[in-house]
Design a protein around this nucleic acid. Structure first.
Lengths: 340, 340
DNA sequence: TTGTAGGCGTTATCAG
DNA sequence: CTGATAACGCCTACAA
């Protein structure tokens, strides 16, 4: 079992110095054509590849991006990762992905681990627990150490850094407006508890839309779901005997469960109740009826985040004190769940 | 913007030598209690963290596992990753994930990139293209360089290494048997083209099951789908006017589309046609009717793969020439799509 | 045209 | 008890 070949070994075999080999491999004119060819042939033969670790140490950069997300088994996040990977690979960067599993502690551990030499910068969507706990020292610290951080989707207002988000409020407003424009007036919303930033914003969008139609919102039509694992029960309880003509759900799962519950109680979607969801995932596309949703364009988010991060990484270190917040457009994808 | 603190800096500040600092931080008895405390206090204050890169270089290992999968936006694979991350993190390993996007070239590039210093070993599920092309030099090479590789799910028989798979044949047989035991006799199969290893195996399982019931298989009931993006059309064309009482689909998407097509042509699932899928994902759980499927226990696969890899990484380098193939049990998850 | 030396951050060995 | 030195693999300025 042969080990990896190093410059040193090649040098010894060829009886030249290490730096000669190094230069020859870079086609430096300092080295005679003859030696160059000899070295390169030898290197190819032994399948020489420079050791990334050594390069990282020398150059004080790893050429890898750390991505930390709340859940890896989640279509939206993997879509974003797809976007990140795409531009990262184009620009010669590696991507390390860690999931915090929505745990504050795991987020901190992962971040510190990657920050101590494994990554040059971060793309981050914070854990639920972090949003609840409001403890952001780990993020602040890695930024203080000079590593750029780009947050996306679940961001933290108090932290000053680059951000890529969608306008959740506007998206929710768009969704609700769509229902209103179809004539719906008693629109229920299935949302999350307030400490989830995106849930709160989407609730606000819903309220805005109602207001713009001069409708006074009815608190009994608002369900803030605490436990996503038991959302079906919560939704069932909530929708029971409720007089509504539409549902706006802040994610796919809530939307699908709403349809299920409605159907079980004899109400058809979209004929009697229209449903709009948020996030354009697998379920939305393949469910019957297929779901009208607000698409977040996850891949684009990932691409933008990666572009910003890499620009910062490669830009002159001086003018880095500018932070931008990019807002990705959402769009309404009309499908069967709101058809006439 | 303060930079990361190094031993050197601490040493200078405290006016001691680098090695004293290093030892003090490790609580070496060589160092006086006094100095130890001083150093540690200072280190804490400046939030010193040893630089992973330097450690990697020194120790000749990175403590990270490279995972290469065909698609990141895929529930099964992310489930597996979840399992890998779980045991990796427990054992102090990092996980780098790269997707090959089912491209041979990207698989090679990613593998070489990670192999040249970024990872100590690999967990790999090969790209479609690689299976088609049958070019495995990159895998063989990284193994030759002494890096262990564990393959899972989409494996390559010709490569000798550790493997974690399910018994696809048996799983498919179980699925088909279930349909047969319910009295179905004209069972269609929606499968993939043969070069996808798992597709072929599942087809075999289907055939085995029929054989065990002394049923001669009917080629007109076998659809090998080429283009997964247009599977709905293919399925529609195929099922049109077909006299069947059950469908076995080798993945969720095929199953869901089958149900859709059947319903559109006026056949109810499960009343008139029963459907079984493979892979227990989001769709299976939430579709209406919910899908009876063969569960692959992805998380467990990931855990096993990671355990095997880490054992190999940490085991004595001598007795590494043993390779095992772990077969994870599949199980039938009964849901509505096969209910009476 | 080639080689030497120093350094990236750390640890281990050995000398003081 | 403390410190100097070498080494991990690579690169580069500066000799020779």
């Amino acid at each position: 079992m042969k080990q990896k070949v190093t410059l040193k070994q090649i040098a010894k075999e060829l009886d030249v110095s290490i730096s000669t080999v190094s230069k020859a491999l870079k086609d430096s004119v300092e080295i005679s054509l003859d030696t160059r060819q000899k070295v390169k042939a030898f290197a190819k033969l032994y399948n020489y590849k420079p050791n990334n670790i050594a390069l990282s140490l020398k150059n004080r950069k790893t050429k890898t991006i750390g991505v930390i997300i709340p859940e890896i088994v989640h279509h939206f996040f993997t879509t974003v990762i797809g976007g990140v990977e795409k531009v990262a690979n184009e620009k010669g960067y590696n991507v390390i992905i860690c999931s915090s599993n929505n745990s504050f502690d795991k987020e901190v551990i992962n971040m510190e681990m990657l920050a101590s030499g494994s990554a040059d910068g971060f793309i981050l969507s914070v854990a639920k627990e972090t949003q609840l706990k409001k403890d952001y020292h780990h993020i602040q610290e890695t930024m203080n150490q000079g590593m750029p951080v780009v947050m996306f989707d679940r961001i933290i207002d108090e932290i000053v850094c680059d951000k890529v988000i969608i306008d959740d409020t506007k998206g929710a407003q768009m969704a609700t407006n769509h229902l209103l424009s179809l004539g719906c007036r008693r629109i229920a919303i299935l949302t999350t508890v307030d400490y989830i930033s995106v849930g709160k914003l989407r609730t606000n969008g819903y309220l805005n839309a109602l207001r713009s139609y001069d409708i006074v919102h009815d608190d009994s039509l608002i369900l803030k779901i605490e436990d996503i694992d038991h959302c079906e029960e919560e939704i069932e309880e909530f929708l029971k005997d409720k007089d509504i003509d539409a549902v706006f759900a802040v994610n796919e799962l809530f939307a699908v469960n709403a349809i299920k519950v409605l159907r079980n109680s004899g109400k058809n979607v979209p004929e009697e109740v229209r449903v709009v969801g948020f996030t354009d995932g697998i379920l939305a596309k393949h469910f019957i009826p297929s779901l009208t949703v607000i698409s977040q364009h996850g891949e684009e988010m990932g691409e933008r985040a990666a572009t910003i991060l890499i620009d910062k990484l490669e830009g002159s270190d001086d003018l880095t004190e500018e932070y931008k917040t990019v807002i990705i457009d959402t769009s309404l994808v009309e499908r069967q769940s709101t058809k006439k």
